[in-house]
Amino acid sequence: MIRPRGTWKGQLAAAVCCLSLFAGGCGYSLDGYSTSSSRAVSILGDGNSTLKIDKVDQVTMYPWVQYYLRGVVRDEVNLRRLARWVDSGSADYLLSINMPGFRVRSSVSNWVDNTLLSDTVVQVELIVRSGKTGAVVWRSGVISYNDKFETVDEASAIRDGLKEALRRALDRMQQKF
C-alpha cells in the first residue's frame, strides 16, 4: 500500500489545534463546553442578571427606528444570553441607547448603470446603569458604522446599518481587554 507523504503531520496539526480550542489555551472556548457556565460573560455578569431598556434617544426622522433599535438589542441580548430580559418592573441593569449621529443618502451609481446605492452612517452608544442606584456601570463609547448598500429601498439599508452598529456595541460589552 502506498501512502502519500506528510498527511499524518497535517492531521496531527489539525487535531492539536482542535484540542487546544477545547482546552481553552487562548482564552476561547466553545459555548456549552465551559466548565463554569454556558452563558456569555460580560459586564452584566454571567447572564443571570435582569436587564431592561430605560430609554432610546435617536436623531432620525423615522419614527420606526426607536422600536427597531429596541427589538435588535433585545434579540441580541437574548441570543448571546447576556442577561434575562424584562420589559417592565425593576431590573438589575438599565440600558440606554443613544444615537448621536445618523445619515443616509441614496444615489444612482453612474450614468450608464441605474443601480440605487444607499450610503448609511450610524453612530450609537450604549450606556448601562445600575437598576438600584442609577450609577453608570459601563459605556460603550460612540460606535460608528458606515457602509454602502445596493438595495431597492432605503429602509432596508437603514436597518442593516443599525443592526451592525448595535452588534458592534454589544461586542464591546463582552470584551475583557
Score class of each variant (00 low, 15 high):
M1L: 15
I2M: 09
I2H: 12
P4F: 13
P4K: 12
R5M: 08
T7V: 15
G10I: 14
Q11A: 03
Q11N: 09
L12A: 11
L12P: 04
L12S: 04
C18E: 11
L19C: 06
S20M: 12
S20F: 11
F22R: 03
A23C: 08
G24E: 05
G24F: 09
G24W: 11
G25I: 14
G27N: 05
G27S: 06
L30M: 05
D31H: 10
D31E: 12
G32W: 14
G32I: 15
Y33P: 01
T35E: 12
T35F: 12
S38N: 10
R39D: 09
A40P: 02
S42V: 00
D46V: 00
S49R: 12
S49C: 07
T50H: 08
L51S: 07
L51M: 10
L51T: 07
K52Y: 06
V56M: 04
T60V: 14
M61K: 10
Y62C: 02
W64Q: 09
W64P: 03
W64L: 04
Y67C: 00
Y67N: 15
G71F: 03
G71W: 01
V72G: 00
V73N: 00
R74Q: 14
E76M: 06
V77K: 03
N78E: 15
N78S: 08
L79H: 12
L79A: 08
R80N: 08
R84W: 04
R84P: 03
W85N: 01
W85E: 03
D87M: 02
S88V: 15
S88G: 06
L95A: 01
I97E: 02
M99E: 01
M99F: 04
P100R: 02
V104W: 00
V104G: 00
R105C: 03
S107G: 03
S109L: 14
N110S: 12
V112N: 07
V121C: 03
V121F: 11
V122C: 05
V124R: 02
R129V: 00
R129E: 14
K132E: 11
G134Q: 06
A135R: 15
A135H: 13
V136S: 04
V137T: 13
G141K: 09
V142Q: 06
I143Y: 07
I143P: 05
I143M: 10
S144K: 13
N146G: 14
F149R: 10
F149M: 07
E150Y: 12
V152M: 09
A157I: 14
A157Y: 08
D160Q: 14
D160P: 01
G161E: 03
L162N: 04
L162H: 10
K163I: 11
E164W: 03
A165K: 04
A165E: 02
L166H: 06
R167H: 10
R168I: 14
R168N: 09
L170V: 00
L170W: 08
L170E: 05
D171H: 04
D171N: 15
D171S: 06
D171F: 14
M173C: 01
M173Q: 01
Q174I: 13
Q175T: 11
